[in-house]
């Protein structure tokens, strides 16, 4: 297990390094000059030179990359801005704010959005899948399969906007989505994010229903389920303790992928509902040619994907003792 973890971690670090390097070097292929943006509209050449030096853009690209990496590990000193302790993600080109602080400021929203929605779509999705499998071919099963087909096909910017239109503006059941920190007001927190949660889960649920249903149908015809039924265990125990356990493996796989990609920023969801999370931050970083911010958001998104794929592999072993992590 330990050897497996070490190997996966090394692999993950290498992957992240490649992604970081790719982002960094590609950034310099973009036409926009961040120094010019930082310098303002009327910019004499000497000031432009000054801005370039301030942003650290005068060194060769690979030197800048090494400096950025070093900042991540041991911190780094900035002229005029002082020391930035490790893990240093640098200062934004646009407003000279420390990137790490901005990220930490936006992260709670994105995490709330992700995990709140995850609770909903996991419960709805797996629940509907189990019910559909147990009632195979009956009306409930048909309803579940039609609903999941539609759910898998709708777009968040369409259904989310429709939901806003009716629930917020026409019927005034909910307020405009907003983020209130959980520690300040738990009820306001849940209330403010309820609409994005529901819309996100509508879209993600479909996948879970489909996979749960098909795996559950398979599991129910397995020998060990028949044995459990034959020895007189109640139906509920057979379903929850035996059949559901095997069903969890594929569910956990897609759950890891979904969580990883959501934490990296649900750009479209945040745009649709006007929430200022990591996704919006990343989108702004791209349009503003804000390299330090872009690096941070890309790294965060990639790290989330990689970390969750490792967690999923560990969970396999927890759920299914037959899986030997070799």
């Amino acid at each position: 297990m330990l050897a497996f973890l070490t190997r996966r971690t090394i692999g993950a670090v290498i992957t992240l390094l490649i992604i970081a390097a790719a982002t960094f070097f590609l950034f310099f292929a973009v036409p926009a000059d961040p120094a010019r943006l930082a310098c303002g509209k009327v910019c004499p050449p000497e000031l432009l030179e000054q801005a370039r030096r301030n942003l650290g853009l005068d060194a060769p690209v690979w030197e800048q990359f090494v400096a950025w990496l070093a900042g991540l590990v041991v911190g780094r000193d900035y002229e005029g801005l002082g020391h930035c302790p490790a893990p240093c993600l640098g200062y934004s080109f646009v407003n000279r704010e420390p990137v790490l602080e901005t990220i930490l400021d936006r992260l709670p929203l994105t995490l709330s959005l992700t995990f709140g929605a995850a609770v909903f779509f996991l419960l709805f999705g797996v629940g509907a899948g189990v019910v559909a499998a147990l009632r195979r071919g009956r009306p409930l099963d048909k309803i579940a399969s039609v609903a999941s087909l539609i759910g898998a096909s709708v777009q968040i910017y369409f259904v989310g906007t429709l939901a806003m239109y009716f629930l917020v503006y026409q019927w005034q059941i909910l307020d405009r989505p907003q983020y209130i920190p959980l520690t300040e007001d738990p009820i306001g927190w849940a209330y403010g994010l309820l609409l994005p949660w529901l819309v996100l889960s509508l879209i993600f649920t479909a996948n879970y229903t489909r996979i749960t249903r098909s795996t559950m149908v398979e599991q129910l015809s397995e020998d060990f389920v028949r044995t459990a039924t034959a020895k007189g265990l109640p139906r509920r125990t057979v379903v929850t303790r035996f059949a559901l356990r095997g069903t969890l493996i594929p569910v956990v796989t897609i759950f890891g992928v979904d969580l990883g990609s959501l934490i990296g920023g649900a750009i479209i969801t945040e745009t649709t509902f006007g929430l200022q999370g990591i996704g919006r931050l990343a989108l702004r970083a791209v349009t503003d040619s804000d390299l330090p911010m872009l690096m941070a958001t890309v790294l965060l998104a990639a790290a989330a994907i990689v970390v969750f794929s490792i967690i999923v592999d560990i969970l396999y072993a927890v759920i299914d003792p037959r899986v030997r992590l070799s």
Partner: peptide, 25 residues
């Protein structure tokens, strides 16, 4: 593996100007 670990939406957005720059000033 690396390709699948890329945050693809973000990267496609970031890539658009890069690729365009290859063809046009």
């Amino acid at each position: 593996d690396v390709m699948l670990s890329f945050p693809s939406t973000l990267f496609i957005i970031a890539f658009m100007p890069v690729v365009e720059n290859l063809f046009v000033g």
